[in-house]
Design a protein around this nucleic acid. Structure first.
Lengths: 272, 272
DNA sequence: CCCTGCCGTTCCGGAGAACGGAACAGCGCT
DNA sequence: AGCGCTGTTCCGTTCTCCGGAACGGCAGGG
């Protein structure tokens, strides 16, 4: 059972016009309508229509249909928001990854060992989506939904995933290495270099490349597929730079690698 | 902003034929296709077509369209499963409820106080969906996705939600009081009686009515809407019957009520 | 080895549905 | 009251989507 997913979807967060090349146009536009709600919590028919370049009446029908399906909910007068049925489906989706259950104990122990936040990330397109997180004490307030997804090029988790996946590398480079901080690696050559080092070392780091002051260390969770191990997810430790890349760096690296190796072994044992 | 949702969708878990009465037929069938994946983790076109009573080709197109939209993922050869994009949307949906953030601290404290599992449930149709859960120590293995949703009539959380909502009561009774254990209340008169007591007391209990050996106590989280407080969610404590309905029952009841009242106040203060 | 089920996918024509535009209705504001 | 803004409904035309059948792979068994 494969765990890594590479749908050929364009992750333009600038919600584009309804995708055209696929069959089932109304279904495609329905998904585009859902996409509109990624940016804004509540929307009406007019705004949706304007964003997608469709008629207002069409948008209204779409919203109504999605609402009767439970994917959206009405909030009073003609405004809609994402429905709780999506929560249900989403939980089913990650539960069935069975990756989360296997990784949870190791994540808890790693958090106790290092006293830092531990994340479990999987690849979604050219992004990393964190499906589980064990927060360090006192971090309850940090990390909200806006930290649930990262561009792969600027995170350590994204690097261990990309290191063994040439197709993903080209996709990331095509998308462009956007700069988030002064430390973000934006030079393709340097990026490839870093991936080579990642391959060699078996782990990756990111030093304040996505958010100033915050760094991370990641190791791949692998699954034997057709002979050789293939990374399907990443375990990463994130915290203030001085705490994860300072004097404790060797301990952090060793801890992450061991935990990831353990999860890999458990996953291998439990795979169906 | 309303939090309780009452979409008129039929929650027949026997996935019915594609719903007909709504506009946008293909969108409706697409949602029905998603529903198929609530029961089974992986499906192919043939099974989906058989379940929904549609042509195989139609099912194939639906699956392909949903996959390009990211709501489904392909797993190898023509089989599909729920996609991680659903997880993302689902997280957004509950994050925006802002109920969860407000309730989380109180849930943690209540768990420490009682050393039992604390749940935050909202109404979805005639079911209760638990959007957050603070597990008692040593309970990590219990509660999986199959415990994320309960019929409202047999749970304490469902009772505090229904007690103040006549429309919900009739919907629950129309759906029928299904028996799960020898203790499940299945008599409509007795059920109404219990709801009356719930209204009077301000909390509800369920004694092994859904799963033998497990009972729960719930109190409503309310929000002032148009003058009088209206329950929008429920806080419940669940555990072995002897621990939550035995000698400690007064402490449990008091703890749940206080925590729910605190969440209500916080929600009132933070409501937009 | 070839054949035969089975599955997913593609092709095609007709029928029906969805689209867009315009008109209607409710609401807040000036 | 008038106006501008919403969301919703109605209608005719067009184009999309549906179902059936044919195609291509794959596996198992004769």
């Amino acid at each position: 059972m494969t765990v890594l997913s590479l749908p050929p979807l364009d992750l333009d967060n600038a919600v584009g016009p309804p995708e055209d090349d696929s069959p089932l146009r109304s279904v495609s536009t329905a998904v585009s309508v859902l996409d509109c709600f990624a940016d804004e919590a509540e929307l009406g028919a007019t705004r949706v229509a304007a964003r997608l370049g469709i008629a207002k009446s069409t948008a209204c029908r779409m919203l109504a249909a999605l609402a009767t399906g439970g994917l959206l909910e009405r909030t009073g007068a003609g405004r809609y928001r994402l429905g709780l049925r999506l929560f249900e489906y989403g939980q089913l989706a990650v539960d069935r990854l069975m990756l989360r259950d296997v990784a949870l104990p190791a994540m808890g122990e790693l958090r106790e060992l290092l006293r830092e936040t531990v994340q479990l990330g999987v690849g979604v397109g050219t992004d990393v989506l964190y499906v589980e997180r064990a927060e360090a004490a006192g971090m309850n307030v940090r990390f909200r939904s806006e930290h649930r997804r990262n561009p792969a090029h600027s995170s350590s988790a994204g690097r261990v995933l990309a290191a063994a996946d040439p197709a993903l590398i080209t996709a990331i480079l095509e998308r462009g290495l956007q700069r988030y901080t002064p430390f973000t690696v934006v030079d393709p050559l340097r990026y490839r270099q870093i991936l080579a080092i990642t391959r060699e070392q078996g782990y990756a780091t990111s030093r304040e490349e996505f958010e100033p002051g915050w760094s991370s260390v990641a190791a791949p969770i692998t699954l034997r597929r057709g002979g050789r191990p293939h990374p399907v997810a990443a375990l990463s430790v994130v915290g203030p730079t001085s705490r994860v890349l300072g004097p404790r760096k060797p301990a952090v690296v060793q801890g992450v690698r061991r935990a990831a190796a353990r999860v890999s072994a458990d996953l291998e044992r439990a795979r169906g």
